[in-house]
Design a protein around this nucleic acid. Structure first.
Length: 448
RNA sequence: UCCUGAGUAGCUCAGUUGGUUAGAGCAUCUGACUGUUAAUCAGAGGGUCCGGGGUUCAAGUCCCUGCUCAGGAGCCA
């Protein structure tokens, strides 16, 4: 028998009244004397196996009674449609073969605390909720690749070891690199995406990014995945439109392909169905005006005390309270663009008409999703870029290759980064980002 | 890094003003049950009350200290 002939729970509807063989793990068992219900999960779903004394040997029936949670088995039986069965189909069991009996599986069907679950992440992944989130994550990754692959983009992989910082220097993970001194784990593939965009026109990189920020929130990981498109001849307007189209595509793809998982997650899909395009756009200056019209202050820590400053001063970055207040009025994501240059990265393009402003944009998600995307048009003027690198006190030698991109055929170009786990968190409604990646890396946790 | 809270059975938690032998549900084990849906019912086993120090006739409970965890802030995707 070829592996292609294997039957999985998700295919049961195609095998009604046929004898099939399923391999999997015991998710739960309910005994009723001479009748046992075994809930078997195999990665594609769960199916109820009905074991009736007399339909198989007495020894086998006793073995079935002794099965424990997460024991691994092979079952043979006839597929029967039955309304009482979870999923609508069940297996009328005629044979059971045990791979291994699991003993004292730690995660029971009752509640558990956060830290217990995260310590058992390698097992927690088997729970139905985590299973559903991982499936949606995979669907989102596929949607992202399909979107770009079908719109003329090429996938380009950027290196993980880098000699320099792309964002702030204080948040880099360091490592020794042979005789060349220190190397850093990449915070972003953007600079390399820019170089490849000058070769291929439209590219995207999709990989992990590492940030040693000492953030301790439910939106932060030290290792997270980011998709970063970079496009030659795109201005900020084009950039925002692309980000919007990508977002709409992802949400639609998940709605079309993950109904069951969204149901398991009890996600309110009416909220997702509203994501259809024409996202609101506000300049930073308009956003500050809105904050002040609605009497939302800047909150600053001065000598350990929270101080409210009103009106909100132009030039300060938004924090969680401002973003949330702003987003409450929208049920689609929203773009904020044209930020003060002083609070943004060195590579962002100065507005030629206002040198206090850079052509940057953030896309904030609804339902308190926070920042899902950050991007900008890039500085294409070599002199302005050199000045910015000096101003940020970055090492000019490390950036010579990057400056070459402005020396040899510099063009207007733009790109953005979308945080995969934050997008998964928003779409699944997960309450913590640690549930949105198989093995989260956080400030105080590296095992498992 | 800062602020706040928590740590009692394998898990989730209760434990009064400091007072006999520290409790419950789930899980585990034993038994009953032919349609269960986190099955139910009867019984059993299971504890270094996070570590260290202190107050007291007496500490799970009060005080100091360390560790671990969670929530929030800042920073960011």
């Amino acid at each position: 028998m070829s592996y292609k002939d294997k039957v999985y729970v998700e295919d049961l509807a195609k095998h009604i009244d046929q004898e099939v063989e399923l391999n999997g793990w015991v998710y739960n068992k309910r005994g009723k004397g001479k009748l046992q219900f075994i809930l078997l999960r195999d990665g594609t779903g769960t199916a109820q196996c009905v074991v009736i004394k007399g339909n198989l040997s007495d020894e086998m029936f006793e073995e079935a009674k002794s099965l424990t949670q997460e024991s691994s088995i092979k079952v043979k039986g006839k597929v029967v449609a039955n309304e009482k069965a979870p999923g609508g189909y069940e297996l009328d069991t005629s044979n059971i073969e045990i791979y291994q009996i699991s003993k004292d599986y730690p995660i029971t069907p009752k509640e558990h605390g956060d830290s217990f679950l995260i310590e058992h992440r390698h097992l927690w992944l088997r729970s139905s909720r985590q299973h559903a989130i991982m499936r949606v994550r995979a669907a989102i990754q596929k949607a992202i690749r399909d979107f770009f692959d079908n719109s003329g983009f090429k996938l380009m992989d950027s290196p993980m070891f880098t000699p320099n910082a792309c964002e702030g220097t204080s948040t880099l993970f360091e490592t020794e690199y042979f005789d060349l001194g220190k190397a850093f784990l990449s915070q972003s593939g953007q600079l390399y995406a820019e170089a490849t965009a000058m070769s291929l026109g439209r590219v995207y990189t999709f990989g992990p990014a590492f940030r040693a920020e000492k953030s301790k929130t439910r939106k932060h990981l030290t290792e997270f995945w980011m998709v970063e498109p970079e496009m030659a001849f795109f201005d900020l307007e084009d950039n925002m439109q692309l980000a919007e189209d990508l977002t709409v595509y992802i949400v639609k793809y998940v709605l079309d392909n993950c109904q069951k998982d969204l149901e398991t997650l009890e996600r309110d899909i009416t909220k997702l169905e509203k994501i259809t395009g024409n996202f609101p756009r506000l300049s930073y200056t308009e956003a500050v005006k809105w904050l002040n019209d609605n009497d939302i202050p800047l909150i600053k820590k001065i000598d350990g005390e929270d101080v409210e400053i009103r009106p909100f001063p132009w030039g300060e970055d938004f924090g969680a309270p401002q973003e949330e207040a702003l987003m409450e009025q929208f049920d689609q994501p929203c773009f904020i663009y044209d930020y003060p240059a002083d609070i943004k990265a060195f590579y962002m393009k100065r507005d030629p008409e206002n040198n206090k402003v850079v052509k940057a944009m953030d896309m904030l998600g609804p339902e308190k999703a926070g920042e899902l995307i950050g991007g900008s048009q890039r500085e294409d003027d070599i002199e302005l870029l050199e000045a910015r690198i000096k101003h940020e006190e970055l090492d000019m030698d490390d950036f010579q290759w990057y400056l070459d991109l402005r020396k040899y055929g510099s063009v207007p170009h733009s790109g953005f980064g979308m945080g995969l786990e934050r997008t998964v968190k928003w779409i699944t409604g997960a309450k913590h980002i640690r549930e949105c990646i198989p093995f989260p890396r956080m400030i105080h946790r590296i095992i498992p």
